[in-house]
């Protein structure tokens, strides 16, 4: 350990403070909004269920928020046996 390391170690509390401030500003902003991802998940599920039989577990909805752009990822797995449209199956 050299002298520089000692100084580096001293600065961990200010880093903690800054990280918390940024994170909490973001979390507080989102707290007031209803849970967007779970609402999307439910509505997407309802639309798909109208036409194809799928299990809840086969639908994954996730949102990745970036600074300038956010991505919404929807992953739907349709098992082959239930891929037959309901109108035909029924």
């Amino acid at each position: 350990m050299n002298l520089l390391d000692i100084f580096k170690r001293r600065s961990s509390a200010p880093v903690a403070r800054e990280r918390l401030q940024v994170l909490l500003a973001y979390e507080r902003r989102n707290r007031s909004q209803p849970d967007l991802v779970s609402i999307l998940r439910e509505e997407i599920m309802a639309v798909i269920a109208k036409h194809v039989q799928i299990d809840q577990d086969y639908l994954q909805v996730s949102m990745d928020r970036g600074e300038t752009m956010s991505t919404l990822e929807i992953d739907i797995q349709i098992p082959n046996k239930s891929a037959v449209p309901m109108a035909m199956a029924g």
Binding site: R9, R10, S12, A13, P14, A16, R17, L20, Q21, L24
Partner: peptide, 16 residues
């Protein structure tokens, strides 16, 4: 540890 800057200070916690 707070004095050595290894731990959040009381002011930090209260401000946050």
């Amino acid at each position: 540890r707070a004095a050595r800057g290894e731990m959040l200070s009381i002011d930090d916690v209260l401000e946050i």
